[in-house]
């Protein structure tokens, strides 16, 4: 049980602390139970689920960089039915006070609608607090355009999910656009309760001996400490533009100081992803660090959220123009 100082309110969801395990880095919840009680987290986001199972991409699926990694897992997942039957029972036994967000995706706006309908139909059975919508998915029918980078498709996907469910929706925004802010605005206009930002950045690594890309699919998504400043920047910008839109900050968080940057930039809670691969205890160490910080300074997560805006002089950060 976290102290009251750590309580994090994200729109309709209250987390016991602001630290969530991010989608794709926490399996379906039970994989970390060896290392620490999942119930001690603020929450966790499941691996991205589609209606149908997916095998994912060919190997190699990860390439390491000096400050992170590039992955092209290809959203391998067990599919909705197997998730409900095989994963949820274990998960319900361990979740405790932690809140579960179900991460969903599809290959077209119609598929987003379909998976949202399945979540809505099983919401009591799975006991989830909300949905995170992974829009960083290629639209197979539209020549593989990334849905999260195309305003029309993005809007259609979010709208479809909203129409199918009354669960709180957080849309996970892609940084692979010129400006993330209009996408946050669009999510809000379509009735999403909040946004998660950022997803991974496009990246590629080339093997200089073999003279070809390392990853089986050629390229993938860059995560890890390398992307921390990008995520903090967009968190700041989105908070400045939409002060009332709840933000789950994500991207490169490995320590409590990193987490605090996101909170100060405007996030209400944060997610830890890649860091948990290297250090499975990253989440609990971050919770302990934030607890210490808040108690030493007699403050709360709620007070800290967005404090960089109030105390700084840049209500709107200057944009670097090269």
């Amino acid at each position: 049980m976290s102290s009251a100082r750590l309580t994090a309110t994200c729109g309709p969801i209250t987390f016991q602390n602001p630290v969530l395990a991010a989608s794709g880095t926490f399996g379906y919840g039970s994989e970390f139970e060896h290392f620490f009680p999942v119930a001690s987290l603020g929450g966790f986001v499941t691996k991205t689920l589609f209606v149908e199972p997916r095998d994912g991409n060919p190997a190699p699926r990860v390439a390491e960089t000096s400050t992170g990694m590039i992955n092209s897992i290809g959203l391998a997942n067990v599919g909705w039915e197997a998730f409900v039957k095989e994963k949820v029972p274990d998960l319900k036994a361990t979740v405790g006070a932690a809140k579960m967000l179900v991460n969903i995706a599809g290959n077209s706006p119609d598929e987003y609608r379909a998976i949202a309908a399945r979540v809505e139909g099983d919401r009591e059975r799975i006991g989830c607090a909300g949905i995170e919508v992974n829009v960083s998915c290629p639209n197979v029918k539209e020549g593989g355009t990334n849905i999260g980078c195309d305003r029309d498709q993005f809007q259609a996907a979010v709208r479809g999910v909203r129409q199918e469910t009354s669960l709180p929706i957080f849309v996970k925004l892609s940084p692979n656009v010129t400006d993330v802010v209009p996408f946050a605005g669009c999510a809000m206009d379509e009735g999403a309760e909040g946004v998660s930002l950022i997803n991974t950045l496009y990246g590629m690594q080339i093997d200089v001996e073999k003279r070809r890309p390392v990853l089986g699919t050629g390229s993938g998504g860059l995560s890890g400490p390398a992307i921390l400043p990008v995520g903090v920047y967009w968190t700041y910008k989105v908070r400045a533009a939409f002060p009332d839109l709840p933000i789950l900050g994500i991207g490169g968080i490995a320590t409590w100081r990193d987490a605090l940057q996101y909170l100060l930039a405007g996030a209400q809670a944060i997610q830890v992803g890649t860091a948990a691969f290297v250090n499975p205890l990253a989440c609990v160490e971050i919770i302990a660090g934030l607890e210490r910080y808040c108690s030493q300074r007699e403050t709360t997560i709620t007070e800290l959220s967005g404090a960089a805006h109030r105390e700084g002089r840049l209500a709107e950060p200057a944009t670097w123009t090269g």
Binding site: H34, P60, R61, V62, A63, E64, N71, I73, A76, A276
Partner: peptide
């Protein structure tokens, strides 16, 4: 195989 986590989460080592 290449692994990022080693405990079934990253799904890299296929």
């Amino acid at each position: 195989e290449r692994m990022a986590c080693g405990f079934g989460v990253c799904q890299a080592c296929i």
